[in-house]
Design a protein around this nucleic acid. Structure first.
Lengths: 266, 266
DNA sequence: CCACCGCTTTGAGCGGGATCAACACGTGTC
DNA sequence: GACACGTGTTGATCCCGCTCAAAGCGGTGG
């Protein structure tokens, strides 16, 4: 399928040379885990597709503006703070963290992104990525050209709606971290939230891998690494979790959820 | 005043009944502090209008989906947590805080909204307002029906773009609060940020009124009210600010900004 | 006038989590 | 094997900001 539609989608604005890329470059990639009818099942847009009951036309258009990028190796950056904003990235596999480096050079972890989640939404306004996106494991991504995305959104209300929802959703989750909570509450919330997000993608919500270092968890939760270690140790003593290295199992989700209540029920 | 045009817009989604609205219907409304050429100058969409160089047509369409609401008296709610999401609200005058009540019944202040700023963006995803919006002073708002807004956005790329930007902007500012910073840094950042936002609307960025109670500031900054009081006292001693009751003047913006650096330069 | 109420300020003591330091463990390198 | 290095755990101490308590301060209404 040669997508002449793409040229239209791209619109004039500042037309990138995207349309000149040989179509084999994109459509012929066997890595696509789907055809025109079955788009990447774990993708951040899977829901939009399903809900909207897209026909082949719309899916094709989505296919056209998506580009598979990666693999990125651990520590490698998908984008850097200050880079001009051109695209959103959906994690396909692996895990990504976003970090901010403040004036003093200290790193601040803003978030972790699981397969199916969208990175880069906070770059739309400033038109530059405000943070670094760093792979924590070998990571594959889908790259959505934002100009193309916007243009498609204008023609497809469902897509526009979905973008609004993605943005608004991230707004909501940003306020979770904001509250002042005890180390135990934060950690419980972190584990439960991670589990829920894995579960939402069809994976186990009680047994998963913490791809990030303890220091990253600590930084994200605004705790010291030592505190993270101690809290996890305490949780293990209390039979709340089983943890060995970076593999964790939630043994008592109800109690964890209870602990996390005042953080998550925000 | 709810223009009858609203009804048509509301269900337009696909149908474009916009063009059928008699133009007299819209341009003749005296309550709007602007005409078809000069839309509310402090409005959250003022920028969009200016940048886009809208003609009468687009402004007229915006006029149609806006409804002036209020005044809301201090303590009164513009919307409540759990209410179904139907509209965004732009503050016209006064001030609004948004708060979350957690499971334990404790209030959490999420943000303060000045004239020209948009409230309710975090409600798009859940389709219910996740928080209460409470007037801190006598407050006037513009109500933007969200379905109408979306429909318009689909037809006006500039509007869509502006909505994306508003959402993304709030995402960025949400991460400011997230860091772990000292009480002094947080307070300095709070004052500087407020000043900048006033300045952005053409008001003084160094002399303004803190419409909210100390307890609200404390809650927002995740500090105790006593700490807020002490820090403000210290700032006064150090000639950083002059403060009397709820009137504050920033005496040494550079030093304040320096203090706030690691919070704001996020 | 005083009483009352909400808001703010000030003081004294305490505790959660940070900090500093040492150690344990696994992995890769020479 | 010896060593360095990154990562994670554990212990001892300290300090910032919270908590509790009380008093100052405008307003408002009797």
């Amino acid at each position: 399928m040669a997508p002449p539609a793409l040229d239209m989608i791209m619109e004039s604005r500042s037309s990138q040379s995207f349309g000149n890329v040989p179509s084999e470059r994109r459509t012929g990639v066997p890595a696509n885990d789907g055809d025109a009818e079955h788009f990447c099942s774990t993708c951040a847009f899977a829901e939009a597709c399903a809900v909207a009951g897209y026909g082949a036309t719309e899916l094709t258009e989505l296919h056209c503006l998506v580009e598979h990028v990666g693999p990125f190796e651990p520590g490698q950056r998908i984008f850097r703070s200050g880079d001009p904003f051109r695209a959103l990235f959906a994690v396909r596999s692996g895990m990504v963290k976003t970090t901010l480096v403040d004036a003093e050079g200290r790193e601040q972890v803003l978030g972790f992104y699981l397969p199916g989640e969208m990175v880069g939404l906070d770059a739309i306004y400033p038109e530059h990525y405000p943070c670094d996106a760093i792979a924590l494991e070998t990571t594959l991504c889908c790259r959505f050209s934002f100009p193309a995305m916007s243009a498609l959104a204008a023609r497809q209300p469902k897509i526009q709606q979905h973008l609004f929802r993605l943005l608004s959703k991230e707004l909501g989750s940003a306020s979770l971290l904001a509250g002042d909570h005890s180390a135990d509450e934060r950690m419980a919330a972190f584990l439960v939230d991670l589990g829920d997000r894995y579960a939402a993608r069809g994976l186990s919500g009680t047994q998963f891998r913490l791809s990030m270092a303890r220091a990253d968890i600590a930084n994200y939760l605004r705790l010291a690494a030592e505190t993270v270690s101690r809290v996890l140790g305490r949780f293990r003593e209390q039979q709340l979790i089983a943890i060995e290295g970076r593999s964790v199992q939630l043994l008592d989700p109800p109690r964890l959820r209870e602990l996390a209540r005042c953080v998550l029920n925000a």
